[in-house]
Design a protein around this nucleic acid. Structure first.
Lengths: 168, 168
DNA sequence: GAATCTAAGTTAGAGCTCTAATGCTCGTCA
DNA sequence: TGACGAGCATTAGAGCTCTAACTTAGATTC
């Protein structure tokens, strides 16, 4: 380790020793939120890295994935599936549309609704990206037993319930 | 439920039935990544909501928290603690500095390093925000037994290891 | 039939995030 | 001593994300 890094590291440890007593009301390592955030950061970073060669971002892949399973869905419904707000989805879809990976056509009955669909190019990109993303998911799944996977999914589900209940 | 929503919902189900066969190589519900992402989205949304009255974003709170535990730390080291890149931390710190919640002073020995510290105002905002954030963490912790908390943290830790190993 | 309500789509603005690239300081090593 | 390498800080540019606000279309209700 180099001296520059050592010095900031040394300062850090010294200050930590001095002030560690009771700066915050809960140690970071005991916060479940920290673990969830770290896991998501690692997931995001890895997915972004493997999706890069496919030419799509994580958000774009998420949209393409749900779009491939729900052709003609509205942008608002797609936003709900992806867990983002309509303006966010609008941003993502505009980028996909600029690259001609999707098309948006007026709904036959409801003038206020746009049907969103993959183009042929979009389907091709989606297939490539999906293969790459699934490779990561399979590696992740292979790390655990069936019981562990179920436990993790269950615990995370309870987190979501609690957090949504707790939201003002 | 209204007709507008019903129609998109109906279309969705119809299309799903038609195409469900084998559009993707792995069902979304079986992807551990989906569960992690959902949990982080719920966490983020709830934390943003409870931090809003304190006048800070989640990213700003994260920086203030680690800053309060490590006075004088460099921006790069702070970025590592928060799990973001230096340019990202620079953006967050600029916003905090504009509001006079932090100050950055040249390092005594190393001309190339800036020491970052909370101002008095920053400490006050941090104390307020921390109380609000910890309330959420306590509620989250109270949802689980000691064994469940340990299991969740352990499983998420293994996810992080696998994902970093898998990253090209 | 008109007021009201709900949902879809959009725009504006603020903030976070990344990669890529640059300039700087310092330490190491030949 | 001088070249190299590593780390810090910063800028530029693209993209994602949110809230707030507006517009429009369709449905409900009186």
């Amino acid at each position: 380790m180099l001296v520059n890094a050592l010095i900031t590291q040394r300062d850090l440890i010294a200050e930590r020793g001095r002030y560690h007593a009771q700066m915050t009301s809960m140690p970071v390592s005991e916060r479940l939120g920290s673990h969830i955030k770290r896991a998501e950061q690692a997931l995001s970073a890895t997915k972004a890295a493997v999706l890069r060669p496919a030419g799509v971002t994580v958000a774009q892949y998420s949209a393409l994935l749900h779009l491939s399973e729900n052709p003609g869905i509205s942008a608002a419904a797609l936003a709900r599936l992806c867990g983002v707000t309509p303006p966010t989805m609008n941003t993502v879809l505009n980028n996909l549309q600029d690259r001609a990976l999707i098309e948006r056509t007026p709904h036959e009955w409801h003038r206020n609704v746009l049907e969103t669909r993959l183009t042929d190019a979009g389907r091709a990109v989606m297939a490539d990206a999906d293969a790459r993303a699934v490779r990561v998911e399979r590696a992740l799944a292979a790390e655990f037993t069936d019981e562990e996977r179920a436990a993790l999914a269950g615990l995370l589900g309870r987190c979501v319930e609690l957090l949504e209940r707790e939201r003002p």
